[in-house]
Simulated assay, not measured.
Amino acid sequence: MESESKPGPATISIDVSLIRKVLRVGKSLLGVNCSQQPVVEAYQALYDLKLIARSKARKRRLEGNEYELLLNFFEQKEKHRSTVIPYRDIFNISLTTCLRISEVTSLRWLDLNSSASKILVRDRKNPNGSEGNHTEIPLLGQSLSIILAQPRQSEFIFPVNPRSVTAGFQRACKKLGITDLRYHDLRREAATRLIELGYTVEEVATVTGHKDLKILWQVYTRITPEHLLKKNINFV
């Protein structure tokens, strides 16, 4: 019997933050006489004991022939009648739009402007709240053709559960021997590809939805030495 994996310090840190938030609003919202101060005072000790820690910035991108391996795997998977999720198209749309998987599966036919090659993305994740944070993004590359190829089965273009997509993606990685690759890493891959193609950070931000360009630079873009070598810049 396999032992269950224990949550890491970064995960526990999130849990502690949630406990603190509940205690902070407990009196005003629930009428409970409580205080967040004990949690605040415990933070330094928890950090010193390494029981909690800040999450490390991810740098993983698609490497080598991983894109081709995954694409071929999804193509074979979709040949089975039991497969109802268009993994290939969702995989590619994630790489051409920089959207989170929850945003991809929330795209609606009503919000598509095919003549202008753009689409409205509703309730995008935002530090100040996602509700009502709608942004319109350009459909670059093959995005529009992928969308138009989908059957109109409901109001959503990709009417599937995002968790099912990520679970299927992880199963594919495991079978292919691809390690330490998460579905959300595709968002970084997509953003960095646009930078490498010559788009400015400001232009990429209109696609990713970032308001803070520093975050886009530090977290979602990772220019590799190999890319710079390909440009073969002559400094002489």
Rank of each mutant, 00 (worst) to 15 (best):
E41R: 14
I157K: 00
N133Y: 12
T96N: 14
E155T: 10
R193C: 06
I223A: 04
T96W: 15
L120K: 13
G209L: 04
S130G: 06
R188L: 07
T11D: 08
T166I: 10
F235K: 10
E2G: 08
S154M: 02
Y87W: 14
N234Q: 14
K214T: 00
L216Y: 00
R187E: 04
T166Q: 11
R61K: 10
V84W: 07
L216M: 07
V25H: 02
V84Q: 07
R100T: 04
T97M: 05
S55C: 02
P138R: 11
Q218D: 02
D48I: 10
D89E: 12
L99W: 01
D89T: 10
K211W: 00
Y183W: 14
V121T: 10
R61M: 11
I90E: 11
A191N: 00
V160Y: 05
I146Y: 06
S55W: 05
L71S: 03
K56W: 15
E66A: 05
A45I: 14
F235V: 13
P162H: 13
I119F: 03
L69I: 00
N161Y: 13
L62Q: 10
P7C: 08
S5R: 12
I215T: 06
G198K: 07
Q76L: 10
A45W: 14
Q150A: 01
P9C: 07
A42P: 04
I101N: 01
L99F: 08
I223E: 00
E103H: 03
Q170K: 12
V39W: 04
F74P: 09
L46I: 15
N128W: 14
I52F: 04
R122C: 09
L139F: 04
E63S: 09
V25M: 01
V165E: 08
L197K: 14
F74V: 12
S145Y: 07
A53F: 06
G177Y: 09
R108E: 06
C34F: 04
K77Q: 06
C98P: 02
R222V: 00
I137A: 01
P225H: 09
P7Q: 11
Q76K: 14
Q153A: 13
H184R: 08
A172T: 01
E63M: 15
S115L: 07
N65F: 07
Q170F: 01
R100V: 07
S145R: 13
E136V: 12
T208Q: 03
L46N: 11
S28G: 05
L23M: 03
T166V: 15
T200P: 01
L148V: 09
T97N: 08
E155I: 10
T221P: 00
V160W: 05
L49N: 13
L194A: 08
F73G: 00
L23R: 04
L30F: 14
S5D: 10
M1T: 13
I146R: 07
D48N: 13
R88S: 06
G141K: 15
S164G: 15
G209Y: 10
G177T: 11
F91Y: 13
V32D: 04
L107N: 01
L110N: 02
G141D: 12
L144V: 14
T179Q: 12
K175F: 09
K79D: 12
I178W: 11
